[in-house]
Write a protein that binds this DNA or RNA. Structure first.
Lengths: 341, 341
DNA sequence: ACCATATTTGGAAGCCCTTCCAAAATTTGC
DNA sequence: GCAAATTTTGGAAGGGCTTCCAAATATGGT
């Protein structure tokens, strides 16, 4: 058996309550005994039993981070931000990865009842109204990152405005035949970015040509935010021949990576034949010389944790919503339309 | 208060022991009562309290995964493999990230005493002899991935052989002035890859020229496996002017990415002016057309978890060591030396 | 020196489960 | 139909901690 609070109490010649007080640096203990107890604690290499403490305190100093199967730089960056704050706050994080977005609710149901965690951070995953209200009813602290729900805290990116600016950027370079490659609309960022694309076209009096809008196929519940689907979508766009768009706004850099490949396979060049603008600014965007809209991924994770900790500390906080600006990062993938076009 | 086992017992008209038996599908319960109890459980939406269960059972169905601050595709891939198996096994994973490799022992010390987890997976992190023997003494299940210790289970990659093959590949293309960019030697893969490099030179009767061997600077406790350090190292190599190596083996793709930049900044081209071979086969290697040694990252994670679960189930297992082969992935970054060279 | 306050202390009760033992219910054998 | 063997059941004890209350000790005022 490992060393317990009773061993410490006995060896230090105090009661177990006193040991507990020394441990939790309670104000109701004299400095002298506290130091005496702490000496014994280090001597025996004692460490409180996390489960016992969690049970007694009804608090686990742990929270759940629920992410879609994390493939991709985006989640990695968000998680880095999460990690940094988690460590700072001396919390632990349990990582759950959801292989199909429909299962999000199941995970949440488990997590909210099991009392293994003090709260949850939901990343890029939607939540049903039923679960959302269950969370508020149970006063279970939860923060959405890169996703929203009217009745919950959320931290997002200005997807609509970002998409609008991306598209407008292409327009400002003289493009009029502007395509969009989007992911499945059941993904909220995909949905909202499409709106931004529409906004921009409308604002500049350009028609929305349905054949220029390609929705990536869903692969393995992943909403199409992947290279393969971007590749396929771009192939489709290029089949339009001379009718093809001169510029394309792609809803994620990873899809744009696939698009780049499709374009070069057709013997075309970027940006001469087709301009490309992405979204995210992931690592490979730099290699691809891809112009893109940068999302503050690290900060999303960071702020998510901070907010969650605040809400854990005080569950009665006002609803909170923060939306980060995106930033246009100009590289080499967008060209100006010359009169010869 | 949430619904407990007592609520279930009362509503089902049975004792608490019976509810527990229904929950853990014990053989000592009749089918009839079991179903009756389960009906009540679903009706009330009961979920066992994880902490209480953990305390009573002395088993948490959770383990720790300890990684260096995970920046980079390598860890992401390993983690994906880990996740997949963890989910399959209905375990939870707590992710700890160590910002400085010296702190590994601290984390382990905490984790082994706290009883929050049933075991730990250590990824790309070394362990001291003291901690290693503490783990065996406490019979704490632990598996090392991408790192080794004589007295613990480990899963690695044949770094030495891989590095030897990478270097030999360059030699077979006719190169004789072959440099190496390595990370800090306190990182075991870095150390071992250097040995492989030496093996290859020796085998082919080539001299080891110290000026061709650059050890990346350590940045933020990260052993130099990053782009910046690769960039700097390559700059240094290129300053040798006409004396510069015609080919370089870089100990990781991410460093190679930095090296690529350094080379192009000098107005040189790959592979005409300098050939490059990396290690890992991370995502951007494809974009860089980088020839490299592929590591089975996903499988490392997968097998790590499997082994850990086996050891948790049976702590008396024989020591285990598995080393994966690397695979040469040939792309465009290595050229043949022509007679004009 | 003595009482009133304030501080510190010990340990019982409780957090929610599992496990074990003894008791109750059921089945089996004849 | 009855005793013996077997299966099923209830619930006390225990896992390691925190918290609370009452008791003990210390402090201060006069």
């Amino acid at each position: 058996m490992a060393v317990t609070i009773y061993d410490i109490a006995e060896k230090a010649g105090v009661g177990i309550g006193t040991v507990s007080r020394a441990l939790n640096n309670s104000p109701h203990i004299s400095l002298r005994t506290k130091e005496k107890v702490q000496a014994v604690i280090t001597e025996l290499g004692y460490q409180p039993h996390a489960m016992a403490r969690g049970l007694a305190k009804q608090k686990t100093y742990t929270f759940a981070v629920i992410v879609p199967v994390f493939t991709g730089y985006f989640f990695m960056e968000v998680l880095r931000g999460v990690q940094q704050e988690v460590t700072k706050a001396h919390y632990d994080m349990i990582l759950y990865s959801v292989d199909h977005s429909d299962k999000t609710d199941l995970f949440l149901k488990k997590v909210t009842r099991e009392k293994r965690v003090d709260g949850a951070l939901l990343i890029s995953l939607g939540i049903s109204d039923v679960q959302a209200s269950a969370c508020t009813r149970l006063r279970f602290p939860i923060v959405l990152v890169d996703s929203t729900h009217p009745s919950l805290d959320s931290i997002t990116v200005q997807n609509r405005q970002g998409a609008e600016r991306a598209t407008s950027h292409l327009i400002s370079l003289g493009h009029t035949k502007i395509g969009m490659i989007d992911a499945q609309l059941k993904s909220s960022p995909a949905q909202v970015r499409l709106e931004g694309y529409r906004d921009a076209l409308k604002k500049h009096g350009l028609p929305l040509d349905e054949k220029y809008l390609i929705i990536s196929d869903q692969i393995a519940g992943q909403h199409g935010f992947n290279r393969e689907s971007g590749y396929l979508a771009m192939k489709q766009l290029l089949q339009l021949g001379s009718e093809r768009p001169t510029a394309v706004f792609v809803s994620s850099d990873i899809q744009a990576a696939g698009a780049v490949r499709a374009i070069s396979e057709e013997g075309l060049t970027i940006p001469e034949d087709v301009s490309l603008i992405g979204f995210d600014d992931i690592e490979i965007a730099e290699y691809l010389e891809l112009t893109t809209m940068r999302q503050p991924m690290f900060q999303l994770g960071q702020l998510g944790v901070r907010r969650l900790l605040e809400r854990i500390a005080n569950p009665d906080l006002e609803r909170f919503h923060r939306s980060f600006d995106t930033e246009l990062v100009i590289r080499q993938s967008c060209g100006i339309v010359t009169s010869t076009n």
